[in-house]
Design a binder for these strands. Structure first.
Lengths: 221, 221
DNA sequence: TCCTGTGAATGTGTTCACAGCA
DNA sequence: TGCTGTGAACACATTCACAGGA
């Protein structure tokens, strides 16, 4: 049976969705190395997740493996791509061409297939017309028209905190429904918009807790 | 009673630790705005978490509020800082001075107190001696000695995937126990090392799922 | 036989509902 | 009275244990 959305039992938890791209990356490595079959135990070794969890994650989308054998490497990869909607090209736009935006644009190119940066916007006139990873930087004033014309539904925000809410509203107004937000602010947006925040200083501050724990454990013996 | 590590009931879940810096940011805004008391309902409104969850998170570390009143804004902030170990300066090092590393270095400066970038390393001779956010870029060959001498225990990895494992091992060998890793690889490190991975393409791919869901929902009516 | 797929058991985290105290 | 602090109920996620089919 093919691996597809909703074919399995129960609803897939969000945490399972976030593990699928990890499997995809490992499968790409295995395909490149010439393995054409992979077991959940192999995937467990390479991802750090338990084999039961991996089997359960995959089973949310249907039966895909062969009992006694394992999963077809290529078949599982294309199945996961289909589940994630990565079996066709996904267009994304980036707002903010500072250092972070530049890193994202460069990184994206050719790095992972099927998510394509189709436009980059910035407010700084000095940056307009520059190419980042093969995509020209446009004025943010063009954002609504371009996003709407290209039908883009995925956006990445890499602008200063003060500008983020406005940019987010413009994106959503133009049809974007999923956002990756690097600005250190909580965005207020309609509930149907899926937002993933990545906040560098919050992560660092949370990590500090574990340092403190170490120090305390050492003090206490 | 003062808010401190382990003063409350049960062990704080990791997800609660990750929420503490969010509270800290909101509290800083409230302090700047002159509020000297804040209720869990206020924090809920500004963070998007439920008020019960906020009270529970704080209670893991002891009783801190005043019944019928709320929490002292300044007192709660300093209590959370103490829990996270941010009541004293925390030193961190950054490895990789590319666009991402530059963004991180610039962002860090003055942005959030108490986590200080004390050294930046890169392998590219052209970058050595440059200043990023007030810190000089050194050769990665100096990494072990500098990290050990300064007693740094927090590291940020912003190097290409191929270099990340080696860099991570060097950092851990020199005494680092907590890592923020931006390289798209699973690091194999001793269990006592706390690793937080931030992987841009995995996040984008996971978001694509929600686009696909939208498309499918539309197709199905 | 071997490894997948899955109900049942367990564990973890969140929400509810209210007791407790300024 | 009002808001914190917390046991109890609930929801969610992971692990266990094994049935099922190549």
């Amino acid at each position: 049976m093919a691996l597809r959305r909703g074919a399995g039992v129960g609803r897939p938890p969000d945490v399972a969705i976030k593990r699928l791209p990890v499997y995809l990356r490992v499968l790409a490595e295995l395909e490149a190395a010439g393995s054409d079959v992979v077991s959940s135990a192999d995937l467990a070794r390479r991802t750090g997740f338990s084999s039961e969890q991996i089997r359960k994650d995959l089973a949310y989308f249907g039966s895909f493996g062969t009992r006694g054998v394992g999963y077809s490497t290529a078949g599982l990869a294309s199945g996961i791509r289909r589940v994630l909607g990565l079996d066709r090209e996904v267009a994304a736009v980036l707002v903010g061409a500072g250092h972070l935006g530049t890193a994202l644009a460069r990184y994206n190119v050719g790095r992972e297939q099927h998510v394509n940066l189709v436009a980059i916007f910035d407010i700084d006139p000095a940056k307009l017309g520059q190419e980042l990873g093969g995509t020209r930087v446009r004025s943010v004033t063009e954002l609504p028209a371009v996003v709407r014309r290209l039908g883009v539904r995925l956006g990445v925000i890499a602008v200063p905190a003060a500008a983020a809410q406005t940019v987010a509203e413009d994106l959503v107004g133009a049809g974007v429904v999923a956002l990756l937000n690097f600005a250190p602010v909580k965005l207020s947006l309609p509930a149907h918009v899926q937002v993933q925040n990545i906040d560098l200083s919050l992560e660092l501050q949370a990590l500090a807790y574990y340092l403190a724990g170490e120090a305390e454990a050492a003090r206490e013996g």
